[in-house]
């Protein structure tokens, strides 16, 4: 993709400001590129000048304590929080023209279509990511229908296939998710997000509210699916064990800024920043 030339200065006011050219350092085979992303809540900083690249199949963990800005960053990436500065760029799949697009100058219909088709968002609380008033099958089928699926039998069999993948008994397909346990709801949410075969999944504390025994099952499931589908993922977690198991790469956040980043095992086994050392040394060993 060529960088669009900036408009020549004619001295005349134009209706729209000229689009900023794409950054020069975008990786050729990347998937998501974030440059100097900044979110402010009034005078308080949500996250500041966050920059990273994400490649297909790569799992990026964002770790830090509550209030470190990791959830703000996730919300800014997924467009649920308005950004005050910086850029979010996404590499469109080759069969859709390819090349990088700036998510903040893309038209809203295109951005929404792209997010619906290419992205998944797994919320910490299943109730934020599920329709609790419709059946499990409809929850899995909805994203397919949103992308134009109009064959009930196909939708049904895909829903059954995904229930199996996330280890929910097939006879629960017509039950409402509110009759499910927390772990089942979370697995249903994962199925609903992966059924369309997205390229990129965002997860906010995916094991947050779950019992430890239930967490292990979910983690193993996510790990297997991410591997199997070659998914790229951005996972926000305060749990370093979760990060170690799932993430290839880590970014450690403190007070809205990334203080350290690198391979997961490097960051956890040989932390350099004082805050990371504190985080790692605070974990109880079992």
């Amino acid at each position: 993709m060529t960088t669009p030339a900036s408009l020549p200065a004619t001295g005349q006011a134009t209706a729209e400001p000229p689009r900023a050219p794409l950054p020069a350092d975008l990786p050729e085979d990347g998937l998501l590129a974030v440059r100097d992303l900044t979110v402010r809540y009034g005078r308080r900083l949500g996250c500041a000048e966050v920059t990273f690249d994400l490649w297909p199949g790569e799992v990026l963990g964002i770790v830090g304590e509550s209030g470190s800005g990791k959830t703000t960053l996730l919300n800014a990436l997924t467009g649920r929080v308005a950004i005050d500065g910086g850029r979010r760029l996404y590499a469109v799949p080759a069969d859709d023209g390819g090349g990088w697009v700036d998510l903040d100058t893309l038209s809203e219909p295109k951005r929404r279509l792209l997010m619906r088709r290419d992205w998944g968002i797994v919320h910490q609380h299943p109730r934020d990511g599920l329709r609790l008033a419709v059946s499990a099958g409809a929850n899995i089928g909805e994203p397919l229908m949103a992308l134009g699926a109009r064959h009930y039998g196909d939708i049904r069999s895909q829903a059954l296939g995904w229930l199996d993948k996330v280890e929910i008994a097939p006879e629960r397909i017509d039950d409402l998710p509110r009759t499910f346990s927390g772990g089942m709801q979370q697995r249903l949410q994962i199925a609903r997000n992966l059924v369309t075969g997205p390229r990129l999944v965002f997860m906010d504390e995916p094991t947050g509210g779950l019992d430890v025994s239930v967490q292990a099952r979910l983690l193993d499931l996510v790990r297997g699916l991410v591997d199997e589908m070659g998914l790229a993922a951005v996972i926000v977690t305060h749990d370093l064990a979760v990060a170690r198991l799932l993430a290839h790469r880590l970014m450690v956040m403190k007070e809205g800024r990334v203080v350290e980043s690198g391979l997961t095992d490097q960051v956890l086994d040989d932390p350099h920043h004082p805050y990371t050392q504190l985080l790692v040394s605070s974990v109880l060993q079992v």
Binding site: V134, S135, E142, M145
Partner: peptide, 13 residues
Amino acid sequence: GVMHVKLYEDIAR
């Protein structure tokens, strides 16, 4: 697409 969810629920039920 969400409109079809209601029809899906009908058929399922």
